[in-house]
Design a protein around this nucleic acid. Structure first.
Lengths: 341, 341
DNA sequence: GCAATTCCTGCAATCGTTTGCATTTTTATT
DNA sequence: AATAAAAATGCAAACGATTGCAGGAATTGC
């Protein structure tokens, strides 16, 4: 019943076809083609016998693994990243590459840096999805000889793909303003390029519209930390002149803000208006529906893979690029017209 | 500045130490030890020179890759699976294994079956996280010579880890009953072992408690499909004797049910009571808080990795096992006391 | 101090491919 | 039909590790 458990090697086909292993190799790889009909015969035979080239041997010889490394340090408990990873995987697989996680650092750094680990596995390229961008380990990787694309961070002279955080944020501010809000606050995530871009967009749009932004209206918090966001919004609401609209670091945190408000008897959008960021599905299903900016995970992933494959396959002509992917604002019930005050 | 971009090979160390490559190999792998101080010297030198063994060469020779394959056919847009993957990854990495996704099937099946792909990459083992368990491709993989652990499905004679869906479901039914509910309905997901287990738990517990279950009280829907779940609950509520408590396929779907109810002016738990399944964080943050069963993703992952590693490292003594991991019911506001009717 | 034993080490083959070079076969040219 | 050119093939050497086997050094026992 079992279809022969032993693996078929190149030389098995060679034997079966009465030619040498090199001929089989050439026929299969179709470079300097052996004679058409012979080549077809060999291919046919290989298929029949269920031959698949041994990846390790091929990698050893060619130093190409058709394997892309993913650097992702944290646990991935976040819908945006989860989507991103999916898209990366599907896109990479469509192009004939597999995805392997780069083992994260351990206390005893016996295994060397990320770069060492990537080299050891002969990874053709690496996508840095989430990491401590200032760590020496990560910078070594980016500086190394393996093609690398970084997502949502910008290194000088390195391929990067970012979601357009600046204009996303501007859209939120504009939407709030158009709904009559004049006291708009922003709870920012921890420092990062993403946060800075959003902050820049926030200030810029406020300035253009002439919205006054007291220092206390920009609060510090963390990404994906509902409790912290809840605290932050509490402080905002305790101000002498509390904001009428609060922009949260992300959708998930925004739920923490909602919960905190509820605890003090406040509701959105009745008492205060809210917006998140990311566009997670849950936010669009709840009531009130979350106003937010949907990040285009598929677009980011697609660009990242495109860049990386170009860097891998055309190392001569490839020039590092920094690509920005548009995000779209989603209106929602949490952000409604400002009440007259 | 760059620390020498060329890779260090075994023979470079051999050269630097004035010994042969085989001696270096033995010193580093520490099997049949070369003389202590020599060995220490070699190790020291290897570290200095930044040596890391080439995975492809080692794999080719030993046919061990220290790489575990993940079979995951769908997009992973579901918190439970996302958690599971995280945990699998961390556990595997802690044991010195990397995780690689097995490329999914394409229309043109040029690349052979999953089994072929796993063989080609010399994967040491495979974890089937999510797949069409009845597909020939998957069954071939499980039947093949690569150690395999399947999650949330049971194959005869294969290592499996399942969340305890039966008792989880029983707990929900019991909770509802204890709150006074007598008309309990269940919206089931598509057919699978998971669904069957839950269904069995549902019927069993209802029977034990003496709750009557009209045929229409078990509705069909799909996992993670809020719209479908919304439709299903609409039909339930249209019954002459609508249920007072509805158990949904999962938390995410349950939100669809909530939305559908809202559309007809009904609220939980005021008008009808609801419970989900999974224990996603979002469900615990919303209002009303979701009653549900939290699946122990970490526990499932840990058991899966343990089983797999045993199968890999002790192929002689390993015997396939089927492990069930307990799940814990979480009370929530969507499931409250039954009103007098 | 010599033989027997143990321990260390190096040689060389091997894993399954790819690929430069040399050789043979085929095709084209006159 | 003889020769030149082109095409197809095979040989053998890599790629970078591991490992059986055998020779050499060190250790032990008497």
């Amino acid at each position: 019943m079992e279809g022969g458990t032993d693996v078929v090697r190149l030389k098995d086909i060679a034997l079966a076809c009465g030619v040498s292993a090199s001929t089989v190799s050439r026929a299969l790889n179709g470079l300097t083609g052996p004679d058409k009909k012979n080549s077809a015969m060999i291919r046919q035979k290989a298929k029949e016998m269920g031959y698949f080239p041994n990846a390790a041997a091929r990698t050893l010889k060619t130093s190409r693994s058709h394997n892309i490394g993913i650097l992702y340090e944290d646990r991935m408990d976040h819908e945006y990243f989860s989507l991103l990873l999916n898209e990366l995987r599907f896109d990479a697989e469509d192009q004939g590459y597999d995805l392997t996680f780069i083992r994260r650092s351990t206390h005893t750094n016996e295994e060397g840096t990320y770069y060492d680990r990537a080299m050891r596995r002969s990874l053709d390229g690496v996508i840095v999805v989430q990491a401590d961008f200032n760590a020496a380990d990560v910078m070594r990787l980016v500086a190394g000889s393996i093609p690398t694309v970084v997502i949502d961070h910008a290194y000088e002279g390195c391929d990067c793909v970012m979601s357009d955080n600046r204009t996303g944020m501007e859209a939120l501010v504009r939407a709030a303003w158009n709904l009559g809000h004049r006291r708009i606050a922003y709870i920012r995530g921890e420092d990062s390029i993403v946060t800075r871009e959003r902050l820049a967009g926030f200030y810029k749009q406020c300035a253009e519209l002439g919205a006054r932004v007291p220092g206390e209206y920009v609060a510090e918090s963390h990404f994906h930390d509902p409790a912290a966001c809840g605290e932050a919004i509490n402080q905002l609401m305790d101000l002498a002149e509390p904001p009428t609209c609060v922009l949260c670091p992300d959708d998930f945190s925004c739920l923490g803000a909602l919960a905190a408000l509820e605890k003090r008897g406040l509701r959105a959008p009745r008492d205060v208006n809210l917006a998140g960021y990311d566009g997670i599905r849950m936010g669009q299903m709840m009531h009130p529906r979350l106003a937010t900016v949907r990040q285009d995970a598929a677009g980011v992933a697609q660009n990242a893979i495109e860049l990386l494959l170009d860097a891998i396959e055309n190392p001569e002509t490839h020039r590092p690029r920094q690509i920005t992917v548009q995000a779209a604002m989603l209106e929602g019930e949490t952000l409604g017209p400002a009440k007259q005050s």
